[in-house]
């Protein structure tokens, strides 16, 4: 299987380790991974700000960049949802691009659900001695049905124990530009999330979307909480030694 990795702009900029972990996991699953250079961002900031023309321009470039691969996989439910659910919607009035957008949408996957649902991965060969809790990022959960797949793979991580938090499916208050446009509201939401995480007594919190993780890590650090924040792919790939937790000193 020829798989193109869509790195996503946040992983590219903030946390390349997540991208490397994704490559590692995909290769373990038997995929040949390539990283097309013509990719940048999925265009959500423009799309969700009402700049449809800007979003379309970026989307067309992405459709070109990912042509010809069997699958396109992103370590983010939000960005995979943009390709998989929203690109076709952008071109409903453009019959020249619509079939290509739909075709890309059908090949696009969020990383962990791809590993489990397409590659049939049942276990991973990783070790991490931690009690962790898992936040279900909104787009992955509600647009793509990512819920059991990460839990199933985490269950196979040696030494790891999952403690579910209450409100795991409630939004953390990131929401792209929302969190800087309405910081007070976002603060309330991420503070509630912080309380739910802390109440589990877990040593670490994981999720599949870097946007949420930056938000959650930022809040936990503001309150000097000693709870590790990591992308689920780092743990599944056994790469927790490769980089300090999100927001922790190097």
């Amino acid at each position: 299987m020829r798989v193109a990795l869509f790195v996503t702009c946040l992983v590219d900029f903030f946390r390349p380790t997540v991208g490397l972990a994704a490559v590692h996991l995909l290769e373990k699953a038997g995929c040949t991974v390539e990283v097309p250079r013509a990719q940048t961002c999925c265009g959500q900031p423009a799309y969700n700000s009402g700049d449809r023309a800007g979003a379309k321009g970026i989307a067309v470039q992405m459709i070109d960049a990912f042509e010809g691969y069997d699958y396109v996989v992103a370590p983010s439910g939000s960005c995979a949802g943009m390709l998989g659910r929203h690109y076709p919607e952008l071109f409903t009035d453009n019959p020249a691009v619509l079939p290509r957008a739909e075709e890309l949408a059908a090949r696009s996957w969020e990383l962990v659900s791809f590993l489990v649902d397409v590659c049939g991965m049942q276990t991973v060969a990783a070790r991490w001695q931690r009690e962790v809790t898992y936040h279900d990022a909104c787009s992955g959960l509600r647009e793509l049905g990512v819920k059991d797949q990460p839990r199933r793979l985490l269950a196979s991580v040696d030494g790891l124990r999952l403690r579910e938090m209450s409100g795991a499916e409630v939004c953390c208050g990131f929401g792209g530009t929302f969190c800087v446009k309405y910081p007070d509201i976002s603060d309330k939401m991420v503070s509630d999330k912080e309380a739910d995480i802390a109440a589990t007594g877990a040593e670490a919190v994981l999720a599949g979307d870097l946007g949420c993780l930056l938000n959650i890590a930022g809040k936990l650090h503001r309150h000097n909480r000693r709870i590790e924040v990591r992308h689920v792919a780092e743990v599944l790939a056994g790469m927790t030694e490769e980089a300090p937790p999100i927001g922790a000193p190097q």
Partner: peptide, 23 residues
């Protein structure tokens, strides 16, 4: 330029290399 973010939470620092440059 990031006050909308940092007014309520810290901003985690990037690891220091972009994924594409590493790749």
């Amino acid at each position: 330029l990031a006050s909308g973010w940092t007014v309520v939470r810290d901003l985690p620092a990037p690891e220091g290399r972009s994924f594409h440059s590493l790749w």
